[in-house]
Design a protein around this nucleic acid. Structure first.
Length: 425
DNA sequence: TCATGTATTACTATGGTCGC
DNA sequence: GCGACCATAGTAATACATGA
């Protein structure tokens, strides 16, 4: 294996060679490789960015002056912009929408050195992934991709994240089980599904992960949450779709790092025709009110900065027991104009209040009077970061996770791994 | 401690809708 | 018509709360 990759390191890479010619000479080329990705691959932007980096590393080993052209199939703008931000531009690179058929030299992140090649010496690359080759259909592959990220999951969770109905997912899971790609496994109290290594291999292949490359730490959910917490987060997409009939979710992921912070779940799509993000935090209410306040003022500010940076509205939802959600009523959110805050009881699946930018809304059953924070302030998105609402930090929860923390450059808020498991199973 | 009811969860069957 | 997909009702298993 190693020998092969040494003799031809390119043969493991599922890329297209798309050489550019700057002169009339055929033996001098811009050594450009093209990589295709789609928002429907089941991977969030940061994981796609890591794959791109892996390709760059492999190309550096294999070629003197390689360049990478990444074609991204995606609606909207956010997915594309996030990838661009997260990629380390180790070689000349350009990230473009997939519909662009050609690329110009000046669009690359840095100049491309020409490469001399022998006439007819084309690089030999791995073929692009074709599901038929593995006897798997698109919907089944999608389920498998979702499960690859989750490792183990219940059917409704898989259905939610895949965007399919439960009965459809049931059939697909049965098929996958017959083929030995997944298996039943006890998760906590109930039986769910787990992906097997055979299934994982196909998924890795579908993501064009080069063989022998370590991708595990980027593949999965970024951190491990308690069972109840995890379940609520994984149901986020289905929850939104039930609550808002005119919503269209393009993709949803759980425990996913974005520009700043790691939402418990993040859904991305349109509501009433407008592209936006739906950020979910689930809180079982184990920390004190003050700790909660400190944590959330940080998170909300992070969401806000993200919204401003990408010019994209964010709906920030806090779910938990009623008393936890009620806690958030007392603050003034009017400074956070590009985001809307909503709260909801985590037991009531499929319900959510209507949101209003810069305000808090919840629809808790007791205390029926719908609370609306009524403070009109000038819209000025440039005032961030906001001042902490009250500086009274008692003890900081210490991180105790052993999970890898590959930094995205931020390290302020999301260090409280220790509190994440509910311990209620 | 034990019995009971309720809530939550997974699983199954069946019939319907939609597009080709 | 047919396949792909969805909605819904109903069953069974389990945990938890309650009260004797």
């Amino acid at each position: 294996m190693k020998r092969i990759s040494l003799s031809n390191p390119l043969s493991n890479l599922a890329l297209e060679w798309a050489p550019g010619y700057t002169t009339n000479r055929q033996d001098v080329v811009l050594d450009i490789f093209r990589h295709h990705i789609s928002y429907k691959d089941g991977l969030p932007p940061y994981a796609q960015a890591r794959i791109i980096d892996l390709f760059a590393n492999q190309l550096i080993k294999a070629r003197p002056h390689p360049a990478l052209w990444v074609s991204v199939d995606t609606p909207g703008n956010w997915f594309y912009a996030e990838i661009k931000r997260l990629v380390k531009f180790k070689i000349p690179m350009t990230i473009q929408p997939s519909w662009k058929p050609i690329i110009w030299e000046w669009q690359f992140s840095s100049p491309i050195q020409p490469t001399h090649i022998q006439a007819g010496d084309f690089p030999i690359l791995a073929p692009l992934f074709d599901p038929k080759e593995y006897g798997i259909k698109e919907p089944a592959l999608r389920v498998l991709q979702v499960l690859a990220r989750l490792k183990t999951a219940y059917r409704p969770e898989i259905a939610s994240l895949a965007g399919f109905s439960e009965s459809h997912v049931r059939n697909l899971l049965k098929q996958l089980q017959v083929e030995g790609l997944i298996e039943r496994r006890q998760i906590g109290k109930y039986e769910g599904y787990a992906i097997r290594s055979k299934g994982l291999r196909i998924v890795h292949r579908s993501w064009n992960i080069p063989k022998g490359v370590h991708f595990t730490k980027y593949r999965g959910e970024f951190r491990y949450a308690g069972e109840r917490h995890r379940r609520k987060a994984r149901m986020w997409r289905a929850w939104l779709e039930k609550a808002y009939p005119d919503i269209e979710i393009w993709e949803s992921w759980t425990e996913v790092p974005i520009q700043r912070g790691i939402p418990d779940a993040l859904a991305w799509g349109t509501h009433q025709g407008k592209e936006m993000l739906f950020w979910l935090e689930v809180d079982s209410g184990k920390s004190s009110g003050q700790t909660m306040q400190r944590i959330y003022s940080g998170r909300i500010a992070q969401a806000c900065r993200h919204a401003v940076a990408w010019n994209l509205p964010i709906i920030f939802c806090i779910m938990g027991p009623g008393w936890v959600v009620r806690h958030f009523r007392k603050y003034d959110y009017s400074k956070f104009t590009p985001i809307a805050l909503i709260g909801h009881d985590w037991r009531d699946f499929g319900g959510l209040p209507q949101y209003v930018m810069g305000e808090w809304r919840d629809d808790l059953l007791q205390n029926r009077a719908l609370h609306i924070s009524k403070t009109k302030l000038p819209f000025d998105p440039n005032q961030y970061p906001p001042k902490p609402k009250k500086k009274k930090i008692n003890k900081t929860p210490k991180p105790k996770s052993s999970k890898p923390r590959f930094s995205i450059g931020e390290n302020d808020d999301d260090t409280w791994y220790g509190d994440r498991s509910e311990g209620e199973e």
